[in-house]
Amino acid sequence: MNLRFTVDGVPTTVVIAAGESLMDVLRRIGKTSVKNGCDRGDCGSCAVLVDGRAVNACLVFAGQVDGTAVGTAEGLAHDGELHPLQSAAVEGGAVQCGFCTPGMLMLAVDLLSRNPEPDEAEVRSALSGSFCRCTGYVKPIEAILAAAGTLLERRS
């Protein structure tokens, strides 16, 4: 069947097989930021936005996202300028191996869209579906709080 959706703002049509996951389709069309860490919804490395809400792409059938807007970490930067969440992650040492980072960024984008001024507990809660084995989450959480501040400043 044909899947029609937008990926990072670009209208896209892909032929998909029955039962194919959104993760597999996104990786097949070159969105390799969508990482496969477990293929069963446990790790969060494949998190993407579907109409602005974070989901684990490995748990979504590609057919389910027909007509939606899908966002990945590859669509966060604009004209070479990093999204404040990305800048804060680099500045704050929040990236070690970087394998979980794209998924974690999408969870953070989702959080900040709903709650622009989260406290640490809210950030922890929002990231609870994303495993990281490198950082102990200390610096990723700090980075998200810092990015939230930057975004608020920009708006005011």
Partner: peptide, 21 residues
């Protein structure tokens, strides 16, 4: 000095830089 990781930008933009990519 707390220099930024030299591959930081590559990683946060989700570039295809892992063997599995």
């Amino acid at each position: 000095i707390n220099e930024r990781k030299i591959d930081g930008r590559t990683l946060v933009t989700g570039s295809p830089v892992f063997a599995g990519d």
